[in-house]
């Protein structure tokens, strides 16, 4: 996590204090992990207000249930991602039912939020990559988002996605393969794009 300054205490110490209701420990955990949970939610929901709501909801649940977190079973970040993933799935399901008529029938994912577009453009990236990501079927999108936006290893992904590491790896591979096909169909020049991306 490169979003927060070096912690004066270890995450374990924050967790212990947070479980006893220490607000400063809760704040430290929040500031350390919130940006990653928010990015993951944004990648899955493609909507800034929804991503904020889910990320905040994830923390409210996590902080209230810190005593239930078992460090023997997973890393705290993996636990947070698991909670966020579940909430994102629920959110998408509810939104899908609410917005069923137009976007679902059009068969196209909604465009990237403006803030996301701006962030991608600052890095010389086209928003097409983001939109292609949003067009993936849910299991593949989750795998690609958790892998790249969540920066997780396959074993951690397996815990968060509730599958084994081989399945997580295979979903990422299939997801990237689908992205390639998406761009081949769209006639995007991969070489030029890659040059822009890595410039």
């Amino acid at each position: 996590m490169d979003d927060a300054a070096d912690p004066p205490l270890s995450v374990e110490a924050w967790l212990e204090r947070g479980a006893r209701g220490d607000e400063r420990a809760g704040a430290a955990l929040f500031h350390h992990f919130y940006p990653a949970v928010f990015r993951l939610s944004l990648g899955l929901l493609n909507d800034l207000p929804d991503a904020e709501e889910v990320a905040q909801d994830t923390f409210v649940y996590a902080l209230r249930n810190l005593a239930r977190f078992d460090p023997q079973r997973s890393a705290f970040r993996t636990w947070l991602f698991t909670i966020a993933l579940s909430r994102c799935r629920n959110k998408r399901r509810r939104k899908w039912l609410e917005q069923l008529p137009l976007e679902a029938l059009a068969g196209r994912p909604p465009g990237a939020p403006r803030a996301v577009e701006a962030a991608l453009e600052r890095r010389g990236l086209r928003r097409q990559l983001w939109e292609a990501l949003q067009s993936l079927p849910e299991p593949l999108r989750e795998a690609v988002v958790v892998r790249y936006l969540g920066e997780m290893r396959y074993r951690e992904m397996a815990d968060a996605l509730g599958c084994n590491a081989k399945t997580a790896e295979s979903r990422v591979r299939l997801g990237v393969e689908r992205l390639r096909r998406y761009f081949e169909t769209a006639g995007v020049d991969g070489e030029q794009f890659l040059a822009e991306v890595t410039a």
Partner: peptide, 27 residues
């Protein structure tokens, strides 16, 4: 062309998102 988008492209996308302003204080 055949290998794109590869790890670098997706990591660059993740890096781009890290520049997204996040209002942690309000949250």
């Amino acid at each position: 062309q055949a290998r794109w988008p590869d790890d670098r492209a997706l990591q660059a996308m993740a890096a781009a998102l890290r520049t997204l302003p996040v209002d942690t204080d309000r949250a």
